[in-house]
Design a protein around this nucleic acid. Structure first.
Length: 857
RNA sequence: GCCGAAGUGGCGGAACUGGUAGACGCGCCGGAUUCAAAAUCCGGUUCUGGCAACAGAGUGCGAGUUCGAUUCUCGCCUUCGGCACCA
C-alpha cells in the first residue's frame, strides 16, 4: 500500500526540484513568445496576510498556465518598500525604518517561497534600494527640464500640536490621531507632476484597453472627467479687488436660472472680504478646519454666508448675490460656481436652506415649467423664461448662449478636466529624496545626473514630529550645481505611488546600471497580465499609465500602455465576533469561537471557547487587525500545506468577487487532495489487464476531454478558476465511479490529465503524482493537454421540452435529427401531451441542442 | 455627497451569447465500516403539497420588454470598494 499524502515532504521536494531545474527563470533571449505576468508587489508590512496569498496565487496560476502553453514567462517579485508604516513602527519600537523594512522583507520572502510561487527571484528588488530610486530621481530631473514637474502651493492637513503634516488616514474625526489636536488646513509649497498634460491621452487610451474590466475603465473615465462647457465671467459690481468672477458650467442652457453665485472659502474674493469682515473671516476659518479629504468636505452640512458682493448677470443684467459656501471646492475649476437651484439638486438644497430664489428655465416633458418645490428638475429640455433663447434645445442653447457671451466678451467654450495635477511632495522621511537643490540665487536646481542618486540617510531616529531630514544639516548642506554657492537640499520625499508607477518596467532589466531601462523593457512590456486589488482601480493604475507615457516619451519603452490585461481581485473576508467589555467591543479571533447550529445546520450563534460566553456575530468583513479576524496564512500552510490553501482560495469564489474564509471549506480542499492522492495510488496498485467496458471507457474519455476543454477555457480565457476546479472535481467523481469498468489505460489518461490541469493550481502535489504515474520531468513545464475531438463525439442529445415556457418533459434525440422529428418526439412525451390536450399550438420554438418550447393558447 | 460594483438554497458559489435555476464544494440528515470514535465510503438535501408520478412557488424589492428573464430596460432598498497624503 502507498504512503499517505504528506504535504510537507511533497512540497519541499517539488520546491527543490524547481530550484534545481530553474524552471521559474525568465529567459531574456528565448525564442518563445514572451508572456509577462505580474501581481501588484506588496508593501513589506511584516508578514503575509490572506489578501497577499490570494493576489499572488491568482497570478501564479496564470503564470504557470502560460508556461504550460509554451510561453517564455516573466513572473517577478519585489517590494514596495517606502511608506508610512515603517515610520510608525520606528516611533513605536525605536527601530530605524530601513532595518525594520529589510527584516520584514527577509521574513516575507521566506513565506512566499513556502507558498510555491513560481517567481524569478533573480530579479527581486526593493524600492528603497538606491539602485532603484536613483532612476526615478533621474526621471524627475528630466521632467523638471521639460516643464512637466513644477512647484505650487497646495493645502495639507496640519497638526498644530505635533507640528507635522498628516495623511488623510491620520485624521480621525477632524483630529490628529496621535495628538488629538483639531486639524487645520495649511497651504505649503509642493512639487507637482503635470498629469493634466496627458489627460486627453489617458482618457482616450482607455478605449483600447479591451482586456480591462469595464468598471475600472468607467471609473478612470469619470475620474479624469473631461467635460465640455462654457467659461463665463460675471462682472462684479462693488468690489475694489476684483472686476469679474469666472465660473465654469456644463449647463449654459440654464444660465437664465442663475439666482446666486458661490465661491470656495479659499477663493481670493472670499479672502478679500474676510480681511475686512470678522464674521466672514470666522466662517472661512471654520471651513479650513478638518481634513482636506473630498469625502469629508462633500458630506458636511451645506453652509454658507453672503459676502455682501454683487455680480451682474452677463446677459440679463440682473444683480446676483455672491456667497461663500463650504461645498465649493477650491481645487476644482475656478473655485467658483454659478448656482441654478431649479436645475441642480445641490444648488436647490442650498437655496432652500438660505431662502434664495429658485427660477425654473427648462421645460419638462409636458412643455411647461417643472414643479421645483420638492426637488430640482435636472433633465434637459427646451428653454423657457430665457428671452430670445426660448424654445431652443440643449445643443442649440449651448451654441447660442456661447455666441451671445462671446459677443459681450464674457465667456467662451472650454474643455474642463476633473483630473488635477499629481502632488508628489511628502513631508516625510521614509521615501525617495526629491532630487532638487534650493539655491537662494538660482532657485530650484535639479541635482545633476552625475550626482545621482541622492541617497536617503538610513541611520536616523524618528520621533513623530517633523521629518528627520529637515534637521540633518550636514546632509542638507550642498553647493549649488549652477553657481557653486552654499545651498540646501529639498527635504521632501516622493509620494510612494512614484515608486509603484514604474517598477513593472524595471523588472525587465533590474540590473541595468547605465539607464532607467534598457532594451529588455521594450521586449517584456506591456505586462500581458496584471493582477491586483480593485482598490487600486483609479490612483495606482492611472499613475502607472501616466508614467508609462513619460517613459515612452523618453524613448525607454515602445508602447503606450503598461498593462494589457487586468484582473482586479476581490478582498478576503472572515466572520467577525465580539463581546462587550466595559462598554467597548472586544474583538474575538475566529479560532476562539465555537459555532452553534440549529437542527438544520444553520449557524445561529457563537460562544467563546473555554468560558462558553455568548458572542455577538458582527458579520463577514474584510480581514483586519482592528476586527481581529485575520487568519494567518503561515499557520494554514503548516497545517494543511500550500496546495490546500491555494486550492481553497482559488475554488471558494471567482477572482473578482470577495472571498469568504471558511475553515470547513479548507477542510474540503484538503479532503479533495487526499482523495486524489489515494485514487492515484490505488490505480497504480490495480491490475493492468482487467476487462474493459467500452461504454464506461468512452464515457470516462469523453469526461476527460470535456474537462480539458473547459479547464483550459476557464483558466485561460474566462479566468474563472473556481469553475475550472469544479470541473476537475467532477472529473475525479467520474474516475471514482467508472474506474472499475473503464480500464487501466483510460484511468491512467484521466489521472495524468488531472495532474496537468491541476499543475498551475496545486503545483506540488501535481508534480509528485505526475512522477508516481510514471512520467518523467517537471510537470510545471509540460505541455498543456490537447483535446481529443474524437473522444467528445455523442450519438444522442437530451432536449428540454417546455409548454408556454414551463418545463414539462425531457426527450432524447439523435444529434442529426431534423426539426420535424424532434417536434414530433416532443409532442409525444407523455407529460407534454397532457399539457397540449385540447389546446392549439400557436408557435414552436426549437433551440438546437437545448430545448423545444411549444406555445399554446 | 460623487464615481464604481454586488445581492441566487442552511452557507460559498454555478448557470459563459435571453433558453433545463441551484453544477462543484461546505454544512446537515440517513446508512456502511468500527468495541467505540476519528478518518473513509454510499445515499439524500431550494421551499410548499403529495406515498409517488407530479404540481405550485422561487434568483434583494416594484414595474416593463419577450414564446421564454438570475441574464435586458426603468425605479427603489441594502452591502461593499474608491474619492487625490493608507498602500
Amino acid at each position: 500500500m502507498q504512503e499517505s499524502y504528506n504535504p510537507a515532504t511533497v512540497e519541499a521536494d517539488a520546491q527543490k526540484l524547481w530550484e534545481q531545474t530553474g524552471v521559474d527563470r525568465a529567459d531574456d533571449n528565448s525564442t518563445a513568445d514572451p508572456f509577462y505576468c505580474l501581481a501588484m508587489f506588496p508593501y513589506p508590512s511584516g508578514k503575509l496576510h490572506m489578501g497577499h496569498v490570494r493576489n499572488y496565487t491568482i497570478a501564479d496560476v496564470i503564470a504557470r498556465y502560460q508556461r504550460m502553453q509554451g510561453r517564455a514567462v516573466l513572473h517577478p517579485m519585489g517590494w514596495d518598500a517606502f511608506g508610512l508604516p515603517a515610520e510608525n513602527a520606528a516611533i513605536q519600537h525605536g527601530v530605524a525604518p530601513a532595518a525594520w523594512t529589510r527584516d520584514n522583507i527577509a521574513h516575507m520572502r521566506g513565506q512566499f517561497k513556502s507558498l510555491g510561487l513560481s517567481y524569478d527571484w533573480s530579479r527581486e528588488f526593493a524600492t528603497c534600494d538606491a539602485d532603484y530610486y536613483r532612476w526615478e530621481q533621474w526621471l524627475f530631473t528630466r521632467l523638471m527640464k521639460k516643464g512637466l514637474a513644477y512647484r505650487k502651493n497646495a493645502v495639507v492637513n496640519w497638526d498644530p500640536v505635533d507640528n507635522t503634516v498628516l495623511a488623510n488616514e491620520q485624521v480621525v474625526d477632524g483630529r490628529g490621531w496621535r495628538s488629538g489636536a483639531l486639524v487645520e488646513q495649511r497651504e505649503i509649497s509642493q512639487w507637482f507632476l503635470r498629469i493634466s498634460e496627458y489627460a486627453d491621452e489617458l482618457l482616450d487610451g482607455l478605449d483600447a484597453l479591451e482586456q480591462w474590466p469595464e468598471a475600472v475603465r468607467t471609473m478612470q473615465r469619470n475620474w479624469i472627467g473631461r467635460s465640455r462647457g462654457l467659461s463665463i465671467r460675471f462682472p462684479v459690481e462693488n468690489c475694489s479687488a476684483c472686476e469679474e468672477l469666472e465660473v465654469f458650467t456644463t449647463r449654459p442652457d440654464t444660465l437664465y436660472g442663475v439666482t446666486y453665485l458661490a465661491v470656495a472659502a479659499g477663493h481670493p474674493l472670499a479672502q478679500h472680504v474676510a480681511a475686512k469682515r470678522e464674521d466672514v473671516a470666522a466662517f472661512c476659518e471654520e471651513c479650513a478646519r478638518g481634513s482636506t479629504s473630498t469625502a469629508d468636505i462633500e458630506t458636511q452640512e451645506k453652509r454658507g454666508m453672503p459676502l455682501g458682493l454683487l455680480a451682474r448677470h452677463p446677459l440679463t443684467g440682473d444683480i446676483l448675490p455672491i456667497w461663500v459656501a463650504n461645498f465649493v471646492l477650491m481645487g476644482y475649476g475656478t473655485g467658483a460656481v454659478m448656482s441654478v437651484p431649479a436645475h441642480d439638486q445641490r444648488d436647490w438644497e442650498f437655496a432652500r436652506a438660505y431662502d434664495l430664489p429658485i427660477r425654473a428655465v427648462i421645460a419638462d416633458a409636458s412643455g411647461e415649467a417643472p414643479d421645483v418645490r420638492e426637488e430640482a428638475y435636472v433633465d434637459k429640455g427646451p428653454l423657457i423664461r430665457s428671452d430670445e433663447f426660448n424654445g431652443l434645445n440643449f445643443e442649440q442653447a449651448f451654441d447660442a448662449i456661447r455666441n451671445a457671451l462671446a459677443e459681450e466678451g464674457l465667456g467662451e467654450e472650454r474643455i474642463q478636466f476633473r483630473l488635477r495635477d499629481w502632488g508628489v511632495s511628502r513631508q516625510r522621511y521614509w521615501g525617495c529624496p526629491i532630487p532638487v537643490i534650493r539655491c537662494a540665487d538660482c532657485g530650484d536646481v535639479p541635482v545633476p545626473e552625475a550626482d545621482l542618486p541622492v541617497r536617503l540617510p538610513e541611520d536616523v531616529v524618528v520621533t513623530g514630529g517633523a521629518s528627520p531630514l529637515t534637521t540633518m544639516e550636514a546632509w542638507k548642506a550642498v553647493d549649488c550645481p549652477h553657481c557653486g554657492k552654499p545651498a540646501q537640499r529639498e527635504t521632501d520625499t516622493f509620494d510612494t505611488f512614484f515608486e509603484s508607477s514604474w517598477y513593472y518596467a524595471r523588472f525587465a532589466c533590474p540590473d541595468a546600471n547605465d539607464a532607467m531601462l534598457d532594451a529588455r523593457a521594450a521586449r517584456w512590456t506591456p505586462v500581458d497580465q496584471y493582477v491586483g486589488g480593485i482598490e487600486h482601480a483609479i490612483l495606482h493604475l492611472l499613475y502607472a499609465r501616466f508614467f508609462h507615457r513619460l517613459m515612452r516619451d523618453e524613448g525607454l519603452v515602445d508602447s503606450d500602455e503598461p498593462f494589457a490585461r487586468l484582473l482586479t481581485q476581490g478582498m478576503v473576508l472572515a466572520d467577525s465576533w465580539s463581546r462587550d467589555l466595559d462598554g467597548r467591543k472586544d474583538w474575538i479571533a475566529p479560532d476562539r469561537v465555537e459555532l452553534q447550529r440549529d437542527d438544520k445546520g444553520r449557524v445561529v450563534g457563537g460562544r467563546l471557547v473555554g468560558s462558553g460566553e455568548a458572542l455577538n456575530h458582527e458579520g463577514m468583513v474584510k480581514m483586519s487587525k482592528s476586527k481581529n479576524n485575520g487568519i494567518d496564512p503561515q499557520a494554514m500552510i503548516e497545517r494543511y500545506g500550500a496546495d490546500t490553501v491555494r486550492l481553497f482560495i482559488m475554488f471558494a469564489a471567482p477572482p473578482e468577487a470577495s472571498l469568504e474564509w471558511s475553515d470547513s471549506g479548507v477542510e474540503g480542499a484538503s479532503r479533495f487532495l487526499k482523495r486524489l492522492w489515494r485514487v492515484v495510488h490505488e490505480h497504480l496498485d490495480s491490475p493492468r489487464d482487467a476487462l474493459v467496458d467500452d461504454s464506461a471507457r468512452g464515457e470516462l474519455r469523453r469526461k476527460v476531454h470535456e474537462t480539458i476543454a473547459k479547464a483550459g477555457d476557464d483558466i485561460g480565457r474566462r479566468q474563472t478558476f473556481n469553475t475550472a476546479i469544479a470541473a476537475i472535481m467532477e472529473l475525479m467523481n467520474s474516475v471514482t465511479s467508472l474506474r472499475e469498468k473503464a480500464g487501466f489505460a483510460a484511468v491512467q489518461e484521466a489521472l495524468e490529465s488531472v495532474c496537468l490541469l491541476l499543475a498551475p493550481i496545486t503545483p506540488h502535489i501535481a508534480q509528485s503524482l505526475w512522477q508516481a504515474l510514471g512520467r518523467e520531468g517537471v510537470v510545471a513545464v509540460a505541455a498543456w493537454p490537447a483535446v481529443d475531438e474524437s473522444a467528445l463525439q455523442v450519438s444522442a442529445v437530451e432536449l428540454v421540452v417546455q409548454v408556454n415556457g414551463k418545463l414539462r418533459g425531457r426527450i432524447s434525440v439523435p444529434v442529426d435529427a431534423d426539426k420535424d422529428s424532434i417536434l414530433a418526439t416532443a409532442r409525444a412525451d407523455q407529460n407534454v401531451a397532457r399539457f397540449l390536450e385540447g389546446q392549439t399550438v400557436r408557435k414552436e420554438i426549437l433551440v438546437p441542442g437545448k430545448l423545444v418550447n411549444l406555445v399554446v393558447a
